[in-house]
């Protein structure tokens, strides 16, 4: 089974997204996993510029290409971490959940509507929820616990 873990990013308009993605990537690297970031061009650029030597993230994919590859069975991941703050993020994640039902799915929900979006989730997932936009702290402890748990599970 692959060591790759898919990090599914939403629109980067909420400031906490990029640092949290790098934080999760760092945890995964320490646990012997390879984070693969699937993002649109703007979300990808923010991660790439924040990590110019690719210390945390070495692999990037276009998010729509990733969904297409999951649909075609060209790729598979044992674990997906999805970052959600709007309805579109929920739509992408719901699709990934349907296309990769065997994956351990962790959803990280943030932004003003985090709790409302979390209530709409109808697929099996472990949720990490905090309605934050700039303050990463409320998310970190649960991320530490959940990522370690998920890596042990896969």
């Amino acid at each position: 089974m692959t060591d790759e873990v898919l990090l599914l990013l939403g629109c980067p308009q909420i400031p906490v997204q990029s640092p949290i993605v790098l934080y999760v990537a760092n945890l995964l690297n320490d646990l012997g996993k390879v984070p693969v970031v699937a993002a649109n061009p703007s979300a990808k650029q923010l991660i790439a510029v924040s990590d110019p030597k690719k210390h945390y993230v070495k692999e990037f994919q276009d998010v729509d290409r990733t969904i297409a590859d999951l649909a075609d069975g060209k790729v598979g991941y044992p674990m997906i971490v999805s970052f959600i703050h709007n309805d579109a993020g929920l739509t992408y994640t719901t699709t990934a959940a349907a296309l990769a039902p065997q994956a351990v799915l962790i959803t990280v929900l943030f932004g003003e509507h985090a709790y409302d979006i979390a209530e709409e989730i109808g697929f099996p997932t472990e949720k990490i929820v905090a309605p934050v936009t700039h303050n990463t702290r409320p998310l970190l402890t649960k991320i530490d616990e959940m990522i370690k748990w998920a890596v042990l599970k896969i």
């Binding site: 990013l9 939403g10 629109c11 308009q13 649109n40 703007s42 979300a43 998010v63 709007n86 309805d87 579109a88 993020g89 739509t91 992408y92």
Partner: peptide, 8 residues
């Protein structure tokens, strides 16, 4: 048709 920054 959904796009990450523009909704559906």
């Amino acid at each position: 048709y959904t796009k990450p920054c523009h909704g559906t």
